[in-house]
Design a protein around this nucleic acid. Structure first.
Lengths: 349, 349
DNA sequence: GTGAAAGCGCTAACAG
DNA sequence: CTGTTAGCGCTTTCAC
């Protein structure tokens, strides 16, 4: 590794003081054009590049933000959410010349340690927390430290002072449920991940509200909240299909489960959308590759990330800023996995 | 943001010199147990945490490694490769107390700038480059700087001195092709992404070698190299299915294409594995969610990342180390999407 | 065993 | 306009 040129080296060669070089680098208006030109030439000649650690040390800022991946990479592995949200964050950061640091821990404790190291170690100026869970220690810690951060997701109800970016999942679920009801469905099943995650419980709530408002009764067996894996998924789906009155529509909170559902339905020879409707949360371009054109709810993951980055940025620039709550709107992307229930079909099922 | 406790503060409170505190932190054997205990108590009491920038400045090391995502997050969006390889890298880093930095640029130039900033800015001690393409500037730059880095993938043929981690894709493709041939297949199609990527062209090569060795002829129409999107995919698959002699087996280089293929086959009422076999590269747990139990080639993405991290780590510890080339073995995961061709079927098709 | 002092590369008053 | 100076918080000789 080559030894690197410092501001001093440049100063010497250009016959100016180090501070002058520093000023030129920051394009201070106090420096004459002549000197600037001269110094810039030397800067280039010598291939100078700033040592960020030194700058960080004195300015107490790093131009870097950290991403806390609460849900370990493993969990979110199949979930396009993770790369997509990072892309959003990354785009904004790139625009502002910020760099990105990731937590690497897999366990709750390891992640917490990562966060402490980033924060106390002054490695980042702000943090973005992905997915907060109930018993989380990270958010309270950040809050206590007064460290600039934003949450993608929803904070626990008893916490204030948190800026967070989120979809209105209750609302989104209501809308999509109403959409399904408007198609004429009366027997709608809800298939989702663990309600331990706010996302899921919110969506369930929206679903239930819409259903109630429509004066429909949803039997308890229509609501399946399960861990995201093949066996539990298949079991849940089979349970639904073996009911006396099977659902005519499925609202699914996760693409993975939707993929599984479509597969199982195909095997059981149940036609989508001719016999049942399927609508799924978290649109991703991935669905293009499924043969059934799935109707989805787009939660704008990229925007979620982008806005979050923007918020931390603002928070870093002005720490006194009031907390705020940005809702990224959702949108139903209609494809052909839903159908308007026709009377005959309704009677038949 | 609370002002943070420095080594000086601790020193004062503990009635020792700053250097002593530093030694205690690093558990220097030169310090008496008594002093250590005392200092450690104060350290804890005051909630001391190291300012990494200061340490980095003097030690000229950062305990951080950078990840260059050549293939932008957008491209790899649906590809579990990205999160999985990062998980591997992350796990190793976590074990060694390293942190992770990501490039955020989307364009070639922006990425290059990110790399320069990381390297010259002394933000990282080493780099891992994911996916190198032909005309890449990053690798030559790193090489010229003598900066510790490893490549996940294969370097351009005319470059030496590069440590890289890779699968033997030619070999893997040969093996899996032989596996398919051994099942009795004689008409095998190759469905893959752009041969601009070494991965793809290597796999194609392996495929062709195996086929030739078996004395089978593969008509040109059996080889489909296409961009990864729905329309081109469907078109290619339909082309194959409309041939006079349709393939009895498909070797697919990408999970996405395999998903699409399964979908199209289902629509065309072609049964897998009863009528055709499908085998796919890049195993991922995602396939658990497909109704057809896909037979896959596991390239051990996690290991790829883990080993890469280990290599940069070694390289950082000992920069004089010879370059090396680690091949992560691949493995066929047999499921039920393949079948042994029985004579009747063969005749019928 | 421990302390004093120098310095990593940079910025930011304060002079002039 | 530019130079001088004093640190940022830490590590690391070199003394004692």
């Amino acid at each position: 590794m080559k030894m690197s040129v410092t501001i001093k080296d440049v100063a010497k060669k250009a016959n100016v003081a180090p501070s002058t070089v520093s000023r030129v680098i920051h394009n201070s208006p106090a420096i004459s054009e002549k000197t600037k030109r001269k110094v810039r030439r030397v800067l280039k000649e010598m291939g100078y590049h700033m040592n960020e650690n030194a700058r960080n040390l004195v300015t107490k800022s790093t131009k870097a933000i950290g991403i806390v991946m609460k849900s370990s990479a493993k969990e979110s592995l199949y979930n396009p959410f993770f790369p997509e949200v990072i892309r959003g964050i990354g785009d904004f950061c790139n625009k502002e010349g910020f760099s990105l640091s990731l937590t690497t821990g897999e366990t709750e404790d390891a992640i917490f340690e990562d966060v402490v190291k980033m924060v106390q170690g002054r490695r980042v100026d702000g943090m973005i927390v992905l997915y907060s869970k109930k018993d989380d220690r990270v958010v309270p810690y950040l809050l206590k430290q007064g460290f600039p951060f934003v949450l993608i997701g929803k904070p626990s109800t008893n916490m204030s002072g948190i800026t967070f970016i989120d979809n209105d999942n209750v609302q989104a679920a209501m809308e999509v449920t109403e959409f399904v009801i408007d198609l004429g469905h009366e027997r709608i099943a809800f298939l989702g991940g663990s309600p331990e995650f706010e996302v899921i419980s919110d969506r369930l709530m929206g679903f239930q509200q819409a259903v109630e408002q429509a004066g429909l009764a949803v039997p308890r067996e229509y609501i399946k909240l399960i861990p995201l894996n093949r066996n539990d998924g298949i079991k849940a789906i089979d349970d639904l299909l073996e009911l006396k009155e099977t659902p005519t529509a499925f609202l699914v909170t996760d693409l993975l489960l939707a993929v599984l559902l479509l597969g199982v339905l195909a095997e059981r020879n149940v036609k989508v959308p001719q016999q049942v409707s399927v609508v799924c949360f978290n649109h991703s371009e991935f669905i293009e590759f499924l043969s059934t054109p799935l109707t989805t709810v787009d939660i704008h993951t990229y925007q979620l990330g982008y806005e979050a980055a923007k918020c931390v940025f603002d928070l870093i620039s002005n720490p006194e800023m009031m907390e705020k709550n940005i809702r990224i709107p959702t949108r139903i992307i209609k494809r052909e996995s839903h159908f308007a229930v026709k009377k005959e079909i309704k009677r038949k099922m």
